[in-house]
Structures are given as C-alpha cells and as structure tokens.
Nucleic acid binder design. Sequence first.
DNA 1: TTGACAGGTTATCACTTGATTACTTATGGT
DNA 2: ACCATAAGTAATCAAGTGATAACCTGTCAA
Lengths: 196, 196
Amino acid sequence: MTAPPVPRMNADDRRELVLRAATRAFARGGFHGTSTDAVAKEAGVSQPYVVRIFGTKLELFLEVFARSSDQIRSVFEDVLAQARAEGTAPTDDEVWLRLGLAYAEMLADRDFLQVLMHGFSAGSVPEIGAQARAGMGQIYATLMGTGCEPERAKDFIAQGMLLNVMVSMQAPEHSEAGDDLAGLTVCAFGDALAEM
Amino acid sequence: MTAPPVPRMNADDRRELVLRAATRAFARGGFHGTSTDAVAKEAGVSQPYVVRIFGTKLELFLEVFARSSDQIRSVFEDVLAQARAEGTAPTDDEVWLRLGLAYAEMLADRDFLQVLMHGFSAGSVPEIGAQARAGMGQIYATLMGTGCEPERAKDFIAQGMLLNVMVSMQAPEHSEAGDDLAGLTVCAFGDALAEM
DNA sequence: TTGACAGGTTATCACTTGATTACTTATGGT
DNA sequence: ACCATAAGTAATCAAGTGATAACCTGTCAA
C-alpha cells in the first residue's frame, strides 16, 4: 500500500545526494542551527537514515566542511596548474587576478563559502576547530605555492574572508542605494555584483 | 534556610552583569550553540531570570551583538577623534596605523570579535542578519569618516575579518612551528602575537 | 509595623532533537 | 524460485531547551 515514493538508489549515490543536501542546509544554519531532520527533509529521506549514513551529526558536518574546504583549495590549485602550464610566472600579478576571478565565480554557489564561515566560527567545538585550522592551513599553503611573499597570500585570504562575511550576512541581497553597507558591498564585490 | 547565595543587586547592575556573561557565552557557541541556561550559569543566576530580563534569547543575543558592534565602532571613533584633536590629517597613513593598533588591542578581549563573527554568520536568522548588516555598515561609515577611498576602508575591514576568523578558529593557541597555519598566523597577527 | 514592590528562585511544561531499534521491501546471485 | 543482503522507514526515547507560572524574600516608605 505504501508506495515507494523514494526510488531506490545505491548507497554511494544516496550518500552523495545527502551530502549535497547537507551542504545547503548547513550553509543556512551552521552546525548548531541545523537539525539532522532539516538535512533529511532537504535530501528527501528520513531523519534516521541520515544519521545511519554518517554516524553522528558532527561527522556529517565535518565531511561537509572538508568538502567545502577542498573545493576552494582545488579551484585554486587548478588555476595555479593552468598558469604553470601556460608558462605564466607564478609570481605574476596575472595569476592573482585569475585566483580572484575564480573565487568570484564561487560566489554564485555560496553554500561552500557559508559552510566555511560556519566552520571557522565554530572553533569551540574541538573537532570543528581542528578541521577549520587544517582547511585554512591547506588553502594558505596552496596560495604560497605561487612562491609569493606571505603578505600577498594573507591579503588575498583577507579579501576572501570579507567576501565570505558579506555573503553570509546577505549583503548583496539587502544593499539598497543610500544604505551604509552599499558602498562597501560595491567596493568588495566589484564586477561580480552584476551577476548576483 | 535557603541562604541567599546571590547577593541582591539593583536591576541595572544585574542586567549589565548578565550581559557581560552572555557575551562570553555567546562568543563560544554563537546564537544557536548557546543555551539560556549556559548564559545563566556563566552569570551565576537562574535560567528563568535571564529570560525574564531580556524577554527572549534572540533579544538577548541582539543586544550582545549590538554592544560588540558598538564597541568596535566607538574604539575607531575615539581614534579618529583623537587624531583630529591632534591635527593629524585624517587621510594620513598614521591614522590607519593607529586604527590597526586599536584593533590589535581588542584581540586581547576576543569575546567581542567572536560574537561579531557569529552574528555575521547567522544571517539566516532575519533579525540577526539585519543587525549584522547595520553593524557592519556603521563600522564602514565610521572608517569612511577619514575621508579615504572606499578601497582603503574595505582593505582595512578585510584584514579585520581575517583576524576575526583566525581568532574564532583559535589559530594563535594552536599554531605550532611547522604547521601550515603558523605562517599565516604570524603574518596576520604580527607583533600582536607576542602578547597572546 | 506593615505592606508593596523589586529582585530573585523553584517547579514545570511543551517541544525539539540526536540517536537507537525494529521492522519492511527491493533486488540480484545461485 | 528463493533467500541473503542492501536500502530504506516508522516508532520510539532520553536529554536538552526556551519559556511560563507560581512562589519567596529583602528592603524601604508611610
């Protein structure tokens, strides 16, 4: 009688689907502000199944965070790899421009960045703090792979953090002319603002 | 029989005391990750009393956030006022140096900064998002009071956001030599690292 | 003295939430 | 055909949570 509303799926695919759903859910509420049931509803499965796949909510969050962190890092690595392939000197300003553009493209898919911010803020949960530091360390190390001065990488990351914060507080959606924040929004996002 | 373990206090003082305790508590766990009971324990009062003073947990958080935001802004305003009093041109690099130093001093009392980060990340709670944007807008406006280019204020805020993030993830406490993150920590905090 | 108000607490409630258990049903290999 | 295994759900639970209600108790003015 109970028709199977959810078609069967192999475990790996289902896991992937739930992970993506969890990324969207955690992007909104962070670790504490998102229930496993919210993740389940987002994924279209039952709450106990979410728990069964990942063991605990914390493990799920850690995996979602690690993915987001890796996503950023791998985008940067791709840019650097391509630059090397083209023979562009890694210290060239051109490379940093491209890194910035690559980051701007990620703004369209804000979930990763918001998950990142939540992870960074949740340092009081020891496991999350540790993974946040590791993720940030890897991103920094990747950027330093250009052979640049630490200052350069730091400034780049700082700009990224500002964008993350602005995205998290939904500045682009809520900036109207005349607003104090509007000036900062325009300045921080620049051209990327047009496509948001 | 039940001795009064908590000495009586007038309402304003008690409110102030609870607000400070709430700042410490929220700095750790953010809005969702901190119970009103945790705040109460931090303040040494009963949980219902916390609720009664502030109405709801959300109102309490908003007040704590507003205070943190105002704290930052007023520190900046003081620096600018003093610079003006000394006749230092507001566009002078000297002013930005002092703003940076003032911010570095606040790192010692991290609670404000961590509360700020939590507020910025919690944009999905409408009231918090609105207040976060307002707070950031005011800080930006204050910095623009130097008469500088938007870029300058933006870059300053970006550096601040990086420091906030690093503080939130407890990078200074967990950076050991050889760690990927250590390089970034040293670079971002600079001299301020010595006194942490 | 007394009594009214201000400053608190204890008891309690309805609800949420993460997790466990037990059950159900496709599906593919033999 | 059949059954073992994999993919999922329904039912349930104990703990935690925000909020309410009822009560207690110094203190100070009249």
